[in-house]
Design a protein around this nucleic acid. Structure first.
Lengths: 351, 351
DNA sequence: TCATCCACCTGAAACGTTTACGGAGGCTTC
DNA sequence: GAAGCCTCCGTAAACGTTTCAGGTGGATGA
């Protein structure tokens, strides 16, 4: 094959003939097999470099029967909830691992009703060796599908209610929100509003449970008027806070599922002439996104923090290990979020 | 090949023998070649469906010499400026086009000093048929590299100073900022602060030019104290506004390169007890991101808007057409941003 | 001295498609 | 009735690797 400039792409056979060796030996030399003389190996490696030889990926894939690629299937229609800010950072973490291991990362944007077909396709056409499942819902059907077709996968998050065991990497959302709630309770807050994500998402459910567990333990009644659940946008955060602050017994503290919601809450607080951290406390869940930093040297928001980029890295590593040993028992990795102190929390004011 | 359940993957040869036909005919029938009887074609298609046959992508790629994939190379180290919120939406738009055309989208996360090597690799190993270049800098060296190695590409944005012609899709950033500035000038504003992105990025330069062009035309002097340039984060927006509002002659209007900066500016305004849209005007550039909406029914910020998702779609289409006809002359697509009126602008107050 | 073994290398098949080339049979055309 | 054409299909080579099954020559051991 030639590129448009007529320079022929060097291939195995040609390189071998230049060296006066068989393709077999050259291949083995380059791939580090033992049955080749050290001297000839060096000769081969040098020649490969000199002639700028790169093995053709398409041929390797066909010959080995491996795709050397992993897939990330992104549902499209589900408005924003997945194609969300999280995603870019997760991908960055995972992609780093892939390229370090010679794997390609394939992104499939797919209408969400076609997601199952997409998995089957990726599998049977042999485009990928495994996939990462994003944004699991409670009782997510994709897990069964993937088990059925035998495509290795790792879930970022968990799908409670799934009867099957599977590989996952997740943050301990319940515990994070429990701790954050306890912290606010310790500061004397009782009217704590939860500004949650959409509660058909698994992580949102766990967060609410963590919140109410903490409230229950301290025997503080959960007021449904203080609970909200919506897409994690600035506007929704603002709206939720407007509501919670206008109650007869207004909220004195907020627990937000995302940075963006937290920004909306802050706007509502300041819009009322109050000051965050003094009049009203706020804790957010901070995914440590590269372009949405929680302050610089000193954090603005008190937050439970867990890097989604790191989660991407871990998920990718787990997936590669599953691909290497498909019959190993399911792996789990539960990450603990750290509670970091910012300027957005303070003791509850005497009423 | 068998999957882990022992079900053999159907392949061409087997399907052909089941049908009593040659692989050639079956292949032709499935790929819509004319030299096959309509009746047998139907028979083949039916059998393919019945036996759940999917052609092996690896074999197709090797046989045809095409990768059926396009690459997006994302520089990693450049702190945040690229792995930015824009990215997810752009990818969503592009990926949609790819999957509709049977192409895979490959993401390469690569340390930015290794980017050139990454392109060479993608090319010579045959993993992709073309690439999209993201976030061009002024006089971006990548363009020369890609021309050299003969890999089809489309740039999202432009790299001024490049002496070569190349394919690009870009927003008319200069014009958008010129119009926005004119609009503020028409409202009577004279102290207009520009909260720009990092000015080694091409788009940021163009935006500044648009801004100063408008100022010059109206013979309003550009005060360097009102210009700032930094990563497009909320915090930087806040900082820039704090500064511009604390000048002896404070800014009465802001022009922000991004939504996040705009949010920071708003926070600074409201933090001073002023009201956005009445006391201080703000215009942002709105990339129409799916998770960072500018209000819902009625926009919050007055903005110059251009959907980055749409840009992704157009870039992808252009790239596929370039791949199909590599020797066609370079294509350009300049998108005009629309100026939409929100609640963040109003007439300048009498001093 | 001869069988055995080891280190190193080769030939050829395989992976699952596409596609250049060819060929058989029926139909037109004169 | 033969030449030519068209329709439909098959054979086999290609794509560029990996890898199985050997093979050669020299060293080793009895």
């Amino acid at each position: 094959m030639e590129n448009r400039f007529g320079r022929a792409q060097m291939n195995l056979k040609e390189l071998a003939s230049k060296l006066g060796l068989s393709p077999t030996t050259v291949s083995r030399a380059l791939n580090g097999y033992p049955e080749v003389n050290e001297a000839t190996r060096e000769r081969v490696v040098a020649a490969a470099k000199r002639h700028n030889y790169r093995p053709n990926a398409r041929a390797i894939r066909l010959a080995t029967g491996r795709a050397l690629a992993v897939g990330h299937v992104i549902p499209l229609n589900t408005r924003s909830e997945i194609m969300n800010p999280i995603f870019a950072d997760f991908i960055a973490g995972a992609g780093d691992v892939y390229s370090r291991n010679g794997y390609d990362m394939i992104l499939s944007i797919v209408a969400d009703e076609a997601e199952e077909a997409a998995y089957r396709d990726l599998m049977s056409r042999g485009t990928v060796d495994g996939v990462i499942v994003h944004a699991p819902k409670t009782n997510d059907p994709r897990i069964r599908v993937l088990k059925d077709i035998g495509l290795p996968f790792v879930v970022h998050g968990r799908a409670s209610g799934a009867e099957l065991d599977y590989n996952w990497v997740d943050v301990n959302n319940r515990r994070a929100f429990q701790r954050a709630t306890e912290f606010l309770l310790d500061l004397g807050h009782r009217r704590i509003a939860l500004v949650n994500g959409l509660e058909h998402m698994d992580f949102a459910v766990r967060r609410r449970i963590g919140y109410s567990d903490a409230m229950d333990t301290k025997a503080v009644a959960v007021d449904p008027a203080l609970l909200s659940s919506s897409e994690m946008t600035e506007i929704n955060g603002h709206r939720a806070a407007e509501h919670a602050l206008s109650l007869p017994e207004p909220a004195t503290a907020f627990l937000c599922a995302s940075m963006l919601q937290g920004m909306g809450v802050r706007r509502a607080i300041e819009g009322r002439g109050l000051r965050m951290g003094r009049d009203v406390s706020v804790i957010i869940f901070d995914d440590d996104l590269s372009y949405l930093r929680n302050g610089e040297d000193v954090p603005i928001f008190t937050a439970t923090r867990s890097s989604v980029r790191e989660a991407g890295r871990l998920s990718a590593e787990m997936l590669l290990s599953v691909i290497a040993q498909p019959d190993s028992p399911p792996q789990h990795r539960l990450l603990e979020a750290e509670l970091i102190l910012g300027q957005s929390t303070g003791p509850a004011l005497a009423p």
